[in-house]
Simulated assay, not measured.
Amino acid sequence: MAAEASAGTQAVERAMALLACFTDERNELRISELCAQTGLGQSTVSRMISSLDRMGFVVQDARTGLYRLGPTGVTLGSVALNSSPIFRAARQITQNLAHAAQLGVNLAEFRDDHLFYLCNFEGVKAPKTFTMAGRTAPLHATGMGKTLLSAQSPEYIRAYYAKGLGVAYTPRTITEPSSMESALAEIRSRGYATEIEELAFGRACVAASIRDRSGEVVAALSVSGPLSEIDLPGRQQELALMVIEAADEVSVALGYSVTRAPQSRLPLPSQEPVH
């Protein structure tokens, strides 16, 4: 029985390893490429891919013979999203905000030292040809990530950087814990975060935190877009108010009473963006 259980576990792990080979950058793969990435033999990969194909986890292009992820993964992803209280509470609110701001709106939660995207909606001034759901991003180089970090202890911030997670994505990325602590103090004071070309050139965002019934910061919401469209010098206060109001609306939907907030969530009128 133990041997059978071990063999079954190994089969599951191998199947998951095969599925994990598919990425945004390499979304169509040959059997030989799957073998190279997993270290499994061709006969094993062929047998397992055939099973995954029958179950709809992968599909094969009839013309090229390449495999890509199939519809069963979409079904499971939808079930996972719909089971998230944060997603259910925020979906319509974020969609409405994208329409009002005409920019992209993102929703993400704190997971394993990273930002985990639950959904995004496009505004007419910030179109995307892909979904962010299921992707991860660094905490220290994103507006939403910094709002989540602002709720963490100084010990956590130092440990985050000690793990080597605070890498530079652009020259504007905050790579020192002392600089991050100063930025987080400013975020706590004014109730929202900005991010300007810290993760990618030419883009910026304004973000605010979301709290659950207990008052714990569990997620964040942001408005984002190209620098030319988000226009932080001219629109920062307007966008900050919109993001804060939307984040508070999600928090209320999760059971949080915003009147219990320990500090004002209204942005100060003369604040400069935090870089």
Rank of each mutant, 00 (worst) to 15 (best):
A3Q: 15
E4T: 06
S6Q: 13
S6D: 12
A15M: 14
A15W: 07
L19N: 04
A20V: 00
D24F: 02
E25L: 09
E25F: 07
E25M: 07
N27E: 11
E28S: 07
R30Q: 05
R30A: 13
I31K: 14
S32N: 12
L34N: 09
Q42I: 08
S43N: 04
T44P: 13
S46L: 07
M48H: 06
L52T: 00
M55H: 03
M55P: 01
G56E: 10
V58N: 13
D61N: 14
A62F: 01
T64F: 05
G65C: 11
Y67M: 11
L69G: 07
G77D: 03
S83W: 04
P85H: 14
I86V: 15
I86F: 04
R88T: 03
I93P: 04
N96S: 11
L97F: 12
A100S: 10
A100C: 04
G104W: 02
G104H: 07
A108I: 02
F110R: 11
H114S: 00
L118D: 08
L118H: 13
L118A: 01
C119N: 04
N120Q: 03
F121N: 08
E122P: 09
E122L: 03
A126E: 05
T129P: 00
F130W: 13
F130V: 01
T131H: 12
T131K: 11
M132G: 03
A133I: 01
G134T: 01
L139T: 05
H140D: 01
A141G: 05
A141K: 12
T142K: 11
T142Q: 14
M144A: 12
L149P: 01
Q152A: 05
E155Y: 11
I157R: 05
I157N: 07
R158K: 13
Y161A: 00
A162Y: 01
G166T: 00
V167Q: 14
V167A: 10
A183T: 09
E186Y: 03
R188F: 14
S189E: 12
R190G: 05
A193R: 02
I196G: 06
I196M: 08
E198F: 14
L199P: 01
L199Y: 15
R211S: 00
R211P: 00
S222V: 07
G225Y: 13
D231G: 12
M242G: 04
M242Q: 14
V243T: 08
S251C: 10
A253N: 09
A253R: 15
L254T: 15
G255K: 00
S257Y: 12
R260M: 13
R260L: 05
A261H: 15
Q263W: 05
R265A: 02
P267E: 15
L268G: 09
S270Q: 14
P273F: 03
P273Y: 02
P273H: 01
